[in-house]
């Protein structure tokens, strides 16, 4: 499509930082808001769209949320400017990426402008079920291992903010998205009072007070972070203190009752790691213990109750790793 690239000619190159005012004079401001179902992504984007519209911008917002219900990916594109053609933000074109969940934030990083994009991200981790697919003892989850410091290298400006915990401390975990709005408000030059007006319109009446507190908390946190360093969480910052989801260290042991096994082959064929086999007597045995993750599928599907999976807890991760290879 040619229209968006044609409008590029009007870029004011002096403007390095995105700002709402600047957006009037140049191509649309692109704000990408992401998270998982139930976090309030759509509410953030609606408040922003409403505010931008009230300032006379043309606003286009598009979102995907229909299949998400609770726990699935949700994202919303908000574009506003003098004239907006397409409702979606192409890769590498987002001025601001607001993420309500840590891994979702990282997933969408390629959409951020490499040089100027601003990354505002909650350090909240919501581990999806498929991150557990690898159940090897001691193995990490298939969840982002990147630290906030490592993310710094990828973005021009980044804030990892423990918004969920801040909201929790306010007494309403669900206000985490408003903490992030507070953070967002510091990189867009709409007046704080107008933001608060927008918020009051979009949150349930009896939660207005707590949401306004959350907004101010987010704003102040960014201010404080800016005073120290641009990439926020160093030692002492909330995100750094978040422990990874607890991994119970264990070793797997299969207890097989050979007299009960009837050689039906179900466990062998349905083992996701293919670590079982029938031996010469056609009795099940664990052929490749190092591959066994202790998922228990063999135990659950054995019609003859011949397999019992024991997950023996070990003292620490190192021991767990040892147990796995033993």
């Amino acid at each position: 499509m040619s229209a968006p690239s044609a409008s590029r000619s009007g870029i004011d190159d002096e403007q390095l930082r995105p700002s709402a005012t600047a957006a009037k004079a140049r191509e649309p401001m692109n704000v990408l808001i992401v998270g998982v179902g139930g976090q309030g992504v759509i509410m953030v984007s609606k408040a922003l769209a409403w505010l931008a519209q009230s300032k006379g911008f043309e606003v286009k917002q598009s979102e995907v949320h229909g299949m998400a219900k609770r726990g699935g990916t949700v994202f919303s594109h908000v574009r506003f400017g003098p004239q907006v053609w397409s409702p979606t933000i192409p890769k590498g074109e987002a001025d601001i990426l607001v993420a309500l969940e840590w891994a979702e934030g990282l997933r969408w990083l390629p959409f951020l402008k490499p040089d100027t994009g601003i990354f505002i991200c909650d350090t909240k981790r919501i581990v999806p079920p498929f991150a557990c697919l690898n159940r090897r003892p001691g193995a990490p989850l298939r969840y982002s291992r990147e630290t906030p410091a490592e993310v710094k290298a990828h973005v021009a400006e980044g804030y990892a903010i423990d918004a969920t915990r801040m909201a929790e401390e306010l007494g309403n975990e669900r206000a985490a998205n408003v903490v992030l709005i507070g953070a967002l408000s510091t990189v867009l030059d709409f007046p704080a009072a107008d933001w608060e007006l927008a918020l009051s319109a979009f949150v349930p009446k009896k939660t207005i007070a707590v949401n306004l507190d959350a907004f101010r908390l987010g704003r102040n946190w960014i201010d404080a972070a800016r005073r120290t360093t641009t990439v926020a969480p160093e030692a002492g910052a909330p995100a750094a203190n978040i422990p990874a989801p607890a991994l119970v260290a264990y070793s797997v042991r299969l207890e097989i009752t050979p007299q009960w096994c009837k050689s039906c082959d179900i466990c062998v064929k349905l083992c996701p790691e293919r670590c079982l086999r029938l031996n010469d007597e056609r009795i099940v045995e664990l052929a490749q213990p190092e591959r066994c993750t202790g998922c228990r599928l063999c135990e659950l599907l054995c019609p003859d109750f011949a397999i019992r999976v024991h997950l023996d807890a070990v003292a620490n991760n190192a021991a767990a790793a040892q147990g796995a290879t033993a």
Binding site: Q259, W260, K262, S263, C264, D265, I266, L300, L301, C302, P303, D304, F305, A306
Partner: peptide, 12 residues
């Protein structure tokens, strides 16, 4: 062991 045939779903 029970009397069901090998692979019988009833055990499950």
């Amino acid at each position: 062991p029970h009397f069901l045939c090998p692979g019988c779903g009833h055990g499950i």
